[in-house]
Design a protein around this nucleic acid. Structure first.
Lengths: 246, 246
DNA sequence: TTTAGAATGTGTAATTTATACACAATATAC
DNA sequence: GTATATTGTGTATAAATTACACATTCTAAA
């Protein structure tokens, strides 16, 4: 009798022991997390990759990941990877999707939970000593190891969508930024050109930027004003009905 | 030495064997899928629940789920649950989120991948003989077993968002439906009232409804026209820039 | 110190989209 | 055949998005 038939037919409650037995002895699977870590540098959206540590994929790049420990929360495992590789804690990190086809990993059955992280590249430059690590322009990310290309593509698409609905982008910028910085960021993430005046109008009308009364320094042209994002005000705002649109 | 330290420090490629050993011997975890199955009946959005099969949660309701087999794709496991419980194959099914805190399940470490499914209640009435199963009005879903309340809330919120951006709702309706049916559906999912004329205008302007030149039958009032959704046309349409809005 | 270069800062008109709202037409039930 | 319920339709207003040009301010180089 198959396990699923058992479940269908039994009308009596399973004991905790019966389930424990299944959990402990039968159906265990290796679980990993993989992090797609984005950064923004030189007006280009970058992703942090590492040379594959598997000989099978020698020379190929892969996402940063590791197996989840049996007594470790999923999110904690993702934070661990991030801290390990960038030295940064307290960064934007969000679960994206779980990939679980049987043969996705050559070492056996490994299901992987993927996370998207956005970090400020300036804040961690130190920890990139490891020369196996490299920031890649997202436009040149091809042929990753394992199913990581699929994972990256999926994550990048979701980022492009989410960044239009939530103020995630600010995690990629310095705390103080000019409107040009902000527009460059959106243009890089979305790979489009935006009208400068309408972009400014849009952000000012949101009323979520705080004018710091400071100017850019060391720019070879008229300096722009600096702003910060007002997270407090944003959090207190309730997003209403967005309309049906597809 | 901890596994993560090994990864950080090693500059040499791991052998496949080394990883296989980790995958096979150390870090395996039980994996389950849980399905949040929505239906639409009597102008009410419903979710399919089952009485918990754990004595600890006797009397409580829970989502439909099962452990994933070691040689089973994640999506296949979700389809298996769905087929088992509703008799339906070929239905809308989408992964939503993975829940993986260490103590979420009393039987030990079980990470669960959650799926959202939308089905046509008319098409499966047969298979609900199992009196442990019940369609619950989503407005009365409280106190579920395990962390299933959290899972349900998460899934329901995502459904409310997604249904405004993609034509998912049609999976909950009969192939032929009136505009009133469609509006009732949206009002039930989003728990709001919509203006009838503007709703019609909106859907007609999308030009994705096919007029079947048929009328409703057996209604105690003027019958409405019947339509079907034009999936082909929708698939061929490229969704453009949606604007920055948060 | 003057000038060229480069980017900032700003407003308005036109278009598109969303909202609010009322009445005649058509079917059933009695 | 009359009451009841729901369908089907249009317009005016408000709001949001788009397209578009010029004066200002700074640096760098002559």
């Amino acid at each position: 009798m198959l396990a699923d038939e058992k479940l269908v037919l039994s009308k009596t409650a399973k004991t905790l022991q019966a389930i424990q037995s299944e959990v402990e002895n039968i159906n265990r699977i290796a679980l990993s997390v993989d992090c797609v870590i984005f950064g923004f540098d030189e007006n280009t959206l970058k992703v942090l990759l590492i040379r594959s540590d598997l000989k099978k994929y020698a020379g190929k790049w892969s996402l940063l990941g590791d197996l989840v420990f049996p007594k470790e929360d999923l999110d904690a495992a993702a934070y661990r990877i991030l801290k390990q590789r960038t030295g940064l804690g307290d960064v934007y990190l969000e679960q994206v999707h779980t990939f679980g086809t049987v043969n996705r990993h050559p070492a056996g059955r490994v299901v992987t939970v993927t996370y998207c992280s956005l970090i400020n590249v300036q804040h961690h430059k130190l920890n990139i000593l490891d020369n196996e690590l490299h920031w890649h322009d997202v436009k040149n990310v091809t042929g990753l190891a394992f199913d990581h290309q699929q994972i990256f593509d999926n994550c990048f698409k979701k980022l492009q969508k989410r960044v239009q609905e939530h103020p995630l982008g600010f995690n990629l910028l310095q705390k103080k930024f000019s409107l040009r910085d902000l527009q460059n960021l959106y243009e890089a993430i979305l790979n489009i050109k935006l009208d400068r005046r309408n972009f400014r109008k849009k952000f000012f009308s949101m009323d979520l930027l705080v004018d710091l009364n400071e100017m850019e320094q060391d720019v070879p042209h008229r300096p722009g004003k600096l702003y910060r994002f007002n997270y407090e005000k944003y959090e207190n705002r309730v997003k209403k009905w967005g309309g049906i649109d597809f």
